[in-house]
Design a protein around this nucleic acid. Structure first.
Lengths: 180, 180
DNA sequence: CCGCCCGTGCGACGATTTGCCGCACGGGCT
DNA sequence: AGCCCGTGCGGCAAATCGTCGCACGGGCGG
Protein backbone atom coordinates (compact mmCIF):
# COMPACT_ATOMS: atom_id res chain seq x y z
CA UNK A 1 0.00 0.00 0.00
CA UNK A 2 1.35 3.40 -0.92
CA UNK A 3 1.96 5.90 1.81
CA UNK A 4 -0.47 8.77 1.57
CA UNK A 5 0.76 10.90 4.43
CA UNK A 6 1.15 11.14 8.16
CA UNK A 7 -1.86 11.58 10.41
CA UNK A 8 -2.21 12.10 14.15
CA UNK A 9 -5.39 11.33 16.07
CA UNK A 10 -5.77 13.28 19.31
CA UNK A 11 -8.53 12.21 21.67
CA UNK A 12 -8.50 11.44 25.34
CA UNK A 13 -10.66 8.42 24.67
CA UNK A 14 -7.84 5.96 24.06
CA UNK A 15 -10.01 3.26 22.65
CA UNK A 16 -11.56 5.59 20.12
CA UNK A 17 -8.26 7.23 19.20
CA UNK A 18 -6.51 3.91 18.72
CA UNK A 19 -9.33 2.51 16.65
CA UNK A 20 -9.40 5.56 14.41
CA UNK A 21 -5.61 5.54 14.05
CA UNK A 22 -5.64 1.89 13.08
CA UNK A 23 -8.31 2.56 10.50
CA UNK A 24 -6.12 5.24 8.95
CA UNK A 25 -3.16 2.87 8.99
CA UNK A 26 -5.26 0.34 7.14
CA UNK A 27 -5.86 2.99 4.50
CA UNK A 28 -2.17 3.56 3.93
CA UNK A 29 -1.52 6.41 6.30
CA UNK A 30 1.31 6.69 8.76
CA UNK A 31 -0.94 6.97 11.77
CA UNK A 32 -0.31 7.91 15.38
CA UNK A 33 -2.57 8.47 18.33
CA UNK A 34 -2.22 10.80 21.30
CA UNK A 35 -4.45 10.95 24.35
CA UNK A 36 -5.14 14.48 25.47
CA UNK A 37 -4.04 18.04 24.86
CA UNK A 38 -0.58 17.80 26.39
CA UNK A 39 0.20 14.47 24.83
CA UNK A 40 -1.23 15.66 21.54
CA UNK A 41 0.95 18.73 21.38
CA UNK A 42 4.06 16.81 22.34
CA UNK A 43 3.43 14.05 19.85
CA UNK A 44 2.64 16.52 17.10
CA UNK A 45 5.93 18.33 17.65
CA UNK A 46 7.66 14.99 17.53
CA UNK A 47 6.16 13.34 14.48
CA UNK A 48 5.14 16.48 12.56
CA UNK A 49 2.10 14.96 10.90
CA UNK A 50 0.51 16.29 7.73
CA UNK A 51 -2.94 15.99 9.22
CA UNK A 52 -4.28 16.08 12.77
CA UNK A 53 -7.69 14.91 13.96
CA UNK A 54 -8.52 16.69 17.20
CA UNK A 55 -11.35 15.99 19.57
CA UNK A 56 -12.83 19.16 20.97
CA UNK A 57 -13.60 18.14 24.48
CA UNK A 58 -10.67 16.62 26.30
CA UNK A 59 -10.18 16.23 29.99
CA UNK A 60 -6.98 18.22 30.22
CA UNK A 61 -7.89 21.18 28.06
CA UNK A 62 -9.63 22.56 25.02
CA UNK A 63 -9.19 21.09 21.59
CA UNK A 64 -9.63 24.59 20.17
CA UNK A 65 -6.66 25.81 22.18
CA UNK A 66 -4.61 22.89 20.95
CA UNK A 67 -5.68 23.63 17.39
CA UNK A 68 -4.51 27.21 17.76
CA UNK A 69 -1.16 26.29 19.21
CA UNK A 70 -0.58 23.55 16.70
CA UNK A 71 -1.26 25.81 13.76
CA UNK A 72 0.93 28.50 15.28
CA UNK A 73 3.81 26.07 15.44
CA UNK A 74 3.14 24.21 12.21
CA UNK A 75 1.22 26.41 9.81
CA UNK A 76 0.93 23.76 7.11
CA UNK A 77 -0.76 21.18 9.28
CA UNK A 78 -4.30 20.35 8.25
CA UNK A 79 -6.66 19.89 11.15
CA UNK A 80 -10.02 18.19 11.20
CA UNK A 81 -11.96 18.89 14.38
CA UNK A 82 -14.15 16.25 15.96
CA UNK A 83 -16.94 16.97 18.37
CA UNK A 84 -19.76 15.21 20.11
CA UNK A 85 -22.51 17.43 18.84
CA UNK A 86 -22.39 19.86 16.01
CA UNK A 87 -22.50 23.32 17.45
CA UNK A 88 -22.56 26.03 14.84
CA UNK A 89 -20.75 28.49 17.10
CA UNK A 90 -17.96 26.06 17.79
CA UNK A 91 -17.70 25.13 14.14
CA UNK A 92 -17.24 28.80 13.29
CA UNK A 93 -14.59 29.19 15.94
CA UNK A 94 -12.71 26.11 14.81
CA UNK A 95 -12.78 27.28 11.20
CA UNK A 96 -11.50 30.71 12.15
CA UNK A 97 -8.64 29.06 13.98
CA UNK A 98 -7.67 27.31 10.80
CA UNK A 99 -9.40 23.97 10.95
CA UNK A 100 -9.97 22.42 7.54
CA UNK A 101 -13.28 20.95 8.54
CA UNK A 102 -15.45 20.07 11.46
CA UNK A 103 -17.43 16.87 11.92
CA UNK A 104 -19.46 15.16 14.60
CA UNK A 105 -18.95 11.85 16.31
CA UNK A 106 -19.41 9.08 15.89
CA UNK A 107 -16.94 9.54 13.06
CA UNK A 108 -15.18 6.78 11.22
CA UNK A 109 -12.01 7.07 9.21
CA UNK A 110 -13.78 7.43 5.89
CA UNK A 111 -15.88 10.29 7.20
CA UNK A 112 -12.78 12.08 8.45
CA UNK A 113 -10.99 11.60 5.13
CA UNK A 114 -14.06 12.75 3.28
CA UNK A 115 -14.23 15.86 5.47
CA UNK A 116 -10.55 16.45 4.79
CA UNK A 117 -11.09 16.25 1.05
CA UNK A 118 -14.12 18.48 1.12
CA UNK A 119 -12.38 20.93 3.39
CA UNK A 120 -9.54 21.34 0.94
CA UNK A 121 -11.68 22.36 -1.98
CA UNK A 122 -13.39 25.61 -2.60
CA UNK A 123 -16.16 25.85 -0.07
CA UNK A 124 -18.69 26.87 -2.62
CA UNK A 125 -21.71 25.32 -4.19
CA UNK A 126 -20.51 21.72 -4.00
CA UNK A 127 -22.85 21.45 -1.10
CA UNK A 128 -22.18 17.78 -0.70
CA UNK A 129 -22.52 14.49 -2.52
CA UNK A 130 -25.81 14.03 -0.70
CA UNK A 131 -25.92 10.82 1.18
CA UNK A 132 -29.13 9.25 2.24
CA UNK A 133 -30.72 11.68 4.67
CA UNK A 134 -31.14 9.82 7.92
CA UNK A 135 -34.67 9.21 9.08
CA UNK A 136 -35.98 11.28 11.95
CA UNK A 137 -35.97 8.27 14.22
CA UNK A 138 -32.39 7.56 13.23
CA UNK A 139 -31.28 11.12 13.89
CA UNK A 140 -33.08 11.10 17.20
CA UNK A 141 -31.43 7.86 18.21
CA UNK A 142 -27.97 9.12 17.34
CA UNK A 143 -28.47 12.36 19.18
CA UNK A 144 -29.66 10.49 22.24
CA UNK A 145 -26.65 8.21 22.11
CA UNK A 146 -24.34 11.18 21.81
CA UNK A 147 -25.77 12.98 24.81
CA UNK A 148 -26.01 9.78 26.77
CA UNK A 149 -22.37 9.07 26.14
CA UNK A 150 -21.58 12.59 27.20
CA UNK A 151 -23.33 11.89 30.49
CA UNK A 152 -21.34 8.70 30.96
CA UNK A 153 -24.52 6.70 30.64
CA UNK A 154 -26.39 8.63 33.30
CA UNK A 155 -29.95 8.33 32.10
CA UNK A 156 -31.44 10.86 34.50
CA UNK A 157 -28.93 13.53 33.57
CA UNK A 158 -29.26 12.82 29.86
CA UNK A 159 -33.02 13.10 30.12
CA UNK A 160 -32.68 16.50 31.76
CA UNK A 161 -30.31 17.73 29.07
CA UNK A 162 -32.53 16.38 26.33
CA UNK A 163 -35.53 18.06 27.82
CA UNK A 164 -37.67 14.98 28.21
CA UNK A 165 -38.89 12.85 31.06
CA UNK A 166 -36.62 10.19 32.43
CA UNK A 167 -39.36 7.62 32.02
CA UNK A 168 -39.64 8.55 28.37
CA UNK A 169 -35.92 8.22 27.80
CA UNK A 170 -35.98 4.79 29.42
CA UNK A 171 -38.77 3.70 27.15
CA UNK A 172 -37.00 5.03 24.08
CA UNK A 173 -33.84 3.20 25.05
CA UNK A 174 -35.75 -0.03 25.55
CA UNK A 175 -37.57 0.27 22.28
CA UNK A 176 -35.16 1.53 19.70
CA UNK A 177 -32.02 -0.54 20.13
CA UNK A 178 -32.63 -2.67 17.07
CA UNK A 179 -32.82 -1.13 13.64
CA UNK A 180 -33.12 2.33 12.24
CA UNK B 1 -28.22 59.35 18.22
CA UNK B 2 -24.63 58.91 17.15
CA UNK B 3 -23.90 57.17 13.91
CA UNK B 4 -22.24 53.85 14.51
CA UNK B 5 -21.69 52.73 10.94
CA UNK B 6 -23.37 51.68 7.74
CA UNK B 7 -25.14 48.34 7.48
CA UNK B 8 -26.84 46.59 4.58
CA UNK B 9 -29.44 43.87 5.03
CA UNK B 10 -29.77 41.49 2.09
CA UNK B 11 -32.70 39.10 2.07
CA UNK B 12 -35.27 38.35 -0.57
CA UNK B 13 -37.93 38.42 2.10
CA UNK B 14 -38.70 42.11 1.85
CA UNK B 15 -40.73 42.29 5.01
CA UNK B 16 -38.02 40.67 7.05
CA UNK B 17 -35.23 42.71 5.44
CA UNK B 18 -37.05 45.99 5.95
CA UNK B 19 -37.92 45.20 9.52
CA UNK B 20 -34.33 44.29 10.33
CA UNK B 21 -33.00 47.38 8.58
CA UNK B 22 -35.35 49.60 10.49
CA UNK B 23 -34.26 48.00 13.74
CA UNK B 24 -30.66 48.83 12.91
CA UNK B 25 -31.63 52.36 12.04
CA UNK B 26 -33.30 52.66 15.43
CA UNK B 27 -29.99 51.70 16.97
CA UNK B 28 -28.10 54.45 15.24
CA UNK B 29 -26.92 52.70 12.12
CA UNK B 30 -27.14 53.96 8.60
CA UNK B 31 -29.22 51.06 7.39
CA UNK B 32 -30.20 49.87 3.93
CA UNK B 33 -32.04 46.84 2.67
CA UNK B 34 -31.68 44.91 -0.58
CA UNK B 35 -33.88 42.10 -1.81
CA UNK B 36 -31.91 39.34 -3.47
CA UNK B 37 -28.45 38.52 -4.71
CA UNK B 38 -28.37 40.86 -7.69
CA UNK B 39 -29.93 43.74 -5.84
CA UNK B 40 -27.69 43.05 -2.86
CA UNK B 41 -24.51 43.20 -4.88
CA UNK B 42 -25.56 46.33 -6.70
CA UNK B 43 -26.61 48.12 -3.55
CA UNK B 44 -23.43 47.08 -1.75
CA UNK B 45 -21.31 48.54 -4.55
CA UNK B 46 -23.32 51.68 -4.31
CA UNK B 47 -23.46 52.38 -0.60
CA UNK B 48 -20.27 50.56 0.43
CA UNK B 49 -21.53 49.53 3.87
CA UNK B 50 -19.28 48.62 6.76
CA UNK B 51 -21.37 45.57 7.56
CA UNK B 52 -23.59 43.31 5.49
CA UNK B 53 -26.19 40.88 6.77
CA UNK B 54 -26.80 38.22 4.13
CA UNK B 55 -29.48 35.59 4.05
CA UNK B 56 -28.19 32.32 2.73
CA UNK B 57 -31.11 31.12 0.69
CA UNK B 58 -32.38 33.62 -1.82
CA UNK B 59 -34.46 32.98 -4.83
CA UNK B 60 -32.06 34.36 -7.37
CA UNK B 61 -28.85 32.80 -6.13
CA UNK B 62 -26.69 31.69 -3.26
CA UNK B 63 -25.88 33.93 -0.35
CA UNK B 64 -22.52 32.20 -0.13
CA UNK B 65 -21.71 33.23 -3.68
CA UNK B 66 -22.71 36.79 -2.89
CA UNK B 67 -20.56 36.71 0.23
CA UNK B 68 -17.61 35.60 -1.84
CA UNK B 69 -18.04 38.27 -4.47
CA UNK B 70 -18.67 40.98 -1.95
CA UNK B 71 -15.52 40.22 -0.03
CA UNK B 72 -13.56 40.01 -3.25
CA UNK B 73 -14.66 43.53 -4.15
CA UNK B 74 -14.63 45.04 -0.68
CA UNK B 75 -12.18 43.15 1.53
CA UNK B 76 -12.91 45.20 4.63
CA UNK B 77 -16.61 44.54 4.67
CA UNK B 78 -17.82 42.53 7.66
CA UNK B 79 -20.45 39.98 6.81
CA UNK B 80 -22.85 38.22 9.14
CA UNK B 81 -24.59 35.28 7.49
CA UNK B 82 -28.20 34.47 8.28
CA UNK B 83 -29.80 31.13 7.68
CA UNK B 84 -33.04 29.43 8.46
CA UNK B 85 -31.49 26.34 9.94
CA UNK B 86 -28.13 25.87 11.57
CA UNK B 87 -26.10 23.66 9.32
CA UNK B 88 -22.58 23.08 10.55
CA UNK B 89 -21.29 22.44 7.05
CA UNK B 90 -22.69 25.69 5.75
CA UNK B 91 -21.38 27.58 8.75
CA UNK B 92 -17.91 26.25 8.00
CA UNK B 93 -18.21 27.28 4.37
CA UNK B 94 -19.39 30.75 5.23
CA UNK B 95 -16.58 31.24 7.70
CA UNK B 96 -14.00 30.11 5.18
CA UNK B 97 -15.38 32.63 2.75
CA UNK B 98 -14.74 35.35 5.26
CA UNK B 99 -17.98 35.73 7.15
CA UNK B 100 -17.53 37.22 10.58
CA UNK B 101 -20.24 35.08 12.08
CA UNK B 102 -23.16 32.89 11.24
CA UNK B 103 -26.52 32.85 12.98
CA UNK B 104 -29.89 31.26 12.54
CA UNK B 105 -33.27 32.81 12.02
CA UNK B 106 -35.37 34.04 13.48
CA UNK B 107 -32.77 36.70 14.22
CA UNK B 108 -33.43 40.16 15.53
CA UNK B 109 -31.15 43.14 15.29
CA UNK B 110 -29.64 42.67 18.71
CA UNK B 111 -28.74 39.09 17.92
CA UNK B 112 -27.04 40.17 14.72
CA UNK B 113 -25.09 42.91 16.48
CA UNK B 114 -24.14 40.50 19.21
CA UNK B 115 -22.93 38.01 16.61
CA UNK B 116 -20.97 40.80 14.96
CA UNK B 117 -19.30 41.69 18.24
CA UNK B 118 -18.49 38.14 19.10
CA UNK B 119 -17.25 37.47 15.61
CA UNK B 120 -14.75 40.27 15.84
CA UNK B 121 -13.02 38.97 18.93
CA UNK B 122 -10.59 36.14 19.16
CA UNK B 123 -12.59 32.98 18.82
CA UNK B 124 -10.99 31.36 21.79
CA UNK B 125 -11.96 29.73 25.00
CA UNK B 126 -13.87 32.76 26.37
CA UNK B 127 -17.19 31.24 25.65
CA UNK B 128 -16.16 27.72 26.38
CA UNK B 129 -16.67 24.79 24.05
CA UNK B 130 -20.07 23.51 23.29
CA UNK B 131 -21.26 22.34 26.65
CA UNK B 132 -24.77 23.12 25.58
CA UNK B 133 -26.28 19.84 24.52
CA UNK B 134 -29.25 20.69 22.39
CA UNK B 135 -32.57 19.38 23.60
CA UNK B 136 -34.13 16.53 21.72
CA UNK B 137 -36.83 18.77 20.37
CA UNK B 138 -34.20 21.23 19.20
CA UNK B 139 -32.16 18.55 17.46
CA UNK B 140 -35.27 17.16 15.85
CA UNK B 141 -36.27 20.57 14.60
CA UNK B 142 -32.86 21.24 13.10
CA UNK B 143 -32.75 17.90 11.39
CA UNK B 144 -36.17 18.44 9.92
CA UNK B 145 -35.17 21.87 8.64
CA UNK B 146 -32.06 20.43 7.05
CA UNK B 147 -33.91 17.70 5.21
CA UNK B 148 -36.66 20.10 4.24
CA UNK B 149 -34.03 22.34 2.77
CA UNK B 150 -32.62 19.44 0.79
CA UNK B 151 -36.07 18.84 -0.60
CA UNK B 152 -36.49 22.48 -1.59
CA UNK B 153 -39.36 22.79 0.81
CA UNK B 154 -41.23 19.78 -0.54
CA UNK B 155 -43.03 18.54 2.54
CA UNK B 156 -44.21 15.25 1.08
CA UNK B 157 -40.73 14.29 -0.06
CA UNK B 158 -39.16 15.39 3.21
CA UNK B 159 -41.68 13.31 5.13
CA UNK B 160 -40.76 10.26 3.09
CA UNK B 161 -37.06 10.79 3.66
CA UNK B 162 -37.62 11.37 7.35
CA UNK B 163 -39.65 8.23 7.64
CA UNK B 164 -42.78 9.79 9.02
CA UNK B 165 -46.23 10.57 7.79
CA UNK B 166 -46.78 13.74 5.83
CA UNK B 167 -49.57 14.70 8.18
CA UNK B 168 -47.20 14.37 11.12
CA UNK B 169 -44.58 16.53 9.48
CA UNK B 170 -47.18 19.18 8.80
CA UNK B 171 -48.21 19.14 12.41
CA UNK B 172 -44.63 19.39 13.61
CA UNK B 173 -43.98 22.31 11.30
CA UNK B 174 -47.06 24.09 12.51
CA UNK B 175 -46.27 23.50 16.13
CA UNK B 176 -42.56 24.03 16.60
CA UNK B 177 -41.85 27.22 14.69
CA UNK B 178 -41.10 29.01 17.93
CA UNK B 179 -37.85 27.84 19.43
CA UNK B 180 -35.96 25.57 21.77
C1' DC C 1 -61.02 21.66 -21.84
C1' DC C 2 -60.59 17.47 -19.37
C1' DG C 3 -58.60 13.87 -16.82
C1' DC C 4 -54.43 12.60 -14.26
C1' DC C 5 -50.79 13.07 -11.02
C1' DC C 6 -48.77 15.40 -7.31
C1' DG C 7 -48.27 18.43 -3.52
C1' DT C 8 -50.71 20.92 0.10
C1' DG C 9 -53.82 21.93 4.04
C1' DC C 10 -56.88 20.24 7.33
C1' DG C 11 -60.66 17.46 9.91
C1' DA C 12 -61.60 13.11 12.40
C1' DC C 13 -60.86 8.73 14.42
C1' DG C 14 -58.50 5.03 16.97
C1' DA C 15 -53.68 3.44 18.31
C1' DT C 16 -49.59 4.68 20.31
C1' DT C 17 -46.57 7.43 23.02
C1' DT C 18 -45.56 10.78 26.48
C1' DG C 19 -45.74 13.20 30.86
C1' DC C 20 -46.22 12.51 35.49
C1' DC C 21 -47.42 10.26 39.43
C1' DG C 22 -46.12 6.34 42.42
C1' DC C 23 -43.21 2.45 44.57
C1' DA C 24 -39.14 -0.50 45.42
C1' DC C 25 -34.32 -1.45 45.21
C1' DG C 26 -29.33 -0.42 45.44
C1' DG C 27 -25.13 2.23 46.19
C1' DG C 28 -22.55 5.95 48.07
C1' DC C 29 -22.43 9.34 51.21
C1' DT C 30 -22.37 11.47 56.34
C1' DA D 1 -28.88 4.38 60.79
C1' DG D 2 -30.66 8.27 57.57
C1' DC D 3 -30.13 10.79 53.12
C1' DC D 4 -29.54 11.56 48.23
C1' DC D 5 -29.48 9.73 43.58
C1' DG D 6 -30.00 6.84 40.01
C1' DT D 7 -32.56 2.96 38.15
C1' DG D 8 -36.49 -0.02 36.66
C1' DC D 9 -41.25 -0.48 36.16
C1' DG D 10 -46.67 -0.06 36.70
C1' DG D 11 -50.60 2.83 35.84
C1' DC D 12 -53.38 6.48 34.02
C1' DA D 13 -54.85 10.79 31.62
C1' DA D 14 -53.30 13.74 27.96
C1' DA D 15 -50.90 14.58 23.94
C1' DT D 16 -49.22 12.95 19.74
C1' DC D 17 -49.04 9.93 15.70
C1' DG D 18 -50.70 7.07 11.87
C1' DT D 19 -54.09 6.68 8.78
C1' DC D 20 -57.96 7.65 6.59
C1' DG D 21 -60.69 11.08 3.79
C1' DC D 22 -61.82 15.44 1.26
C1' DA D 23 -60.93 19.83 -1.16
C1' DC D 24 -57.98 22.83 -3.72
C1' DG D 25 -54.38 24.19 -7.09
C1' DG D 26 -50.88 23.58 -10.64
C1' DG D 27 -48.57 21.21 -14.42
C1' DC D 28 -49.08 18.14 -18.43
C1' DG D 29 -50.53 15.14 -22.15
C1' DG D 30 -54.60 13.86 -24.79
Amino acid sequence: MTDVGSILVIDDDRIFADRLARAFADRGWTANAAYGVRDGFRTAMEVEPDVAVIDLKMGDGSGLELLKQLRAQMPEIEVVVLTGYGSVATAVDATKLGAVNFITKPAHADMVLDALERGRGEPLVPHEPDYAPPSLARAEWEHIQRVLEDCDGNISQAARLLGLHRRTLQRKLNKYPPNQ
